[in-house]
Amino acid sequence: MKERGNTSLAEKLQTPARRIFWTEWRGRSITYVSVWIVILILLSLLWFITSKGLQPFLNGEITLSQFFSTNWSPQDNKFGSLYIMLGSFMVTIGATLISAPLGISAAIFMTEIAPKWGKKVLQPATEILVGIPSVVYGFIGLTLLVPFIGKLIGGIGFGLLSGILVLSIMILPTIISISVDAIEAVPQKYREGSYALGATRWQTIWKIVLKTALPGLMTAVVLGMARAFGEALAVQMVIGNVPNAPFHFFISIHTLTSMITQNMGNTVPGETFNQILWSMALVLLLMTLVFILVIRLITRRRDVS
């Protein structure tokens, strides 16, 4: 750098430019760093959960076939977790079977049947349903649903059915809001074409709108399933927490999330039971990744066509 006194005009004009270049660079770097923070968090999460979950297998404390068996008795060091995993799948599938038709129907109502009423009443309703914390769902399930089922069927009321019902309400708003987006994305001219051919509203919905929106609707359902599969507290509060075979509606069962929630605090880090819980967390994580993969496959097909 020369002295300040005898700088040329060109250099004078360059100096502020250089300062702006610096601000520009700094701003860009800040955003770049933020993005990298997100990436690093995610990668380290995947790495930590994976390595911790694989540990009991690598240490030889349990084999894969033992882990995927039905023999669960922690006091005898038997940790066959198949029924627990199946429990997660059963509540997820059950909740989806209830919520998918309801949610898609509600989305059709909001977009095709009564848009005004739908936007004014049903949309705020879904937004409020999203906002209700999961413990509150669990609490309602525990104080309202479980005693009711118990009275109706006999027994204590905890179990698969309670879990399914609570989860089906929880994933409903997810399915509704994404289905609405998918249906709204169907070009208006398709509907007009259908009406012009003399089709009724129902025929238009069933044959044109739903068919066109199918990939989006499937995404909605899969996202709902992912949410149901990973939901922890609400399920834990109503499922009964006994690792029975999950093939009956009215007996207490366990899911991956309920098992982890209930026992992570009660087991000592390092003992086999505790390590198995981390392996279950790994299964949970892998299933989440599978759900995302499925969504990617669905949406890719749409992009091609």
């Binding site: 997100v38 990436i39 968090i41 995610l42 380290s44 999460l45 930590f48 959960i49 911790k52 996202l223 992912a226 949410r227 599969f229 990973g230 939901e231 922890a232 999330t257 982890i260 929630t261 992570m264 981390w278 967390a281 949970l284 994580l285 989440t288 990744l289 759900f291 995302i292």
Partner: peptide
């Protein structure tokens, strides 16, 4: 993809990662 994965992580998994780290 990272954002998508992160936003659909079950919150219990995030809790467990927090417990570990």
């Amino acid at each position: 993809l990272c954002m998508e994965v992160m936003s659909s992580l079950p919150s219990i998994i995030i809790g467990l990662f927090g417990l570990l780290l």
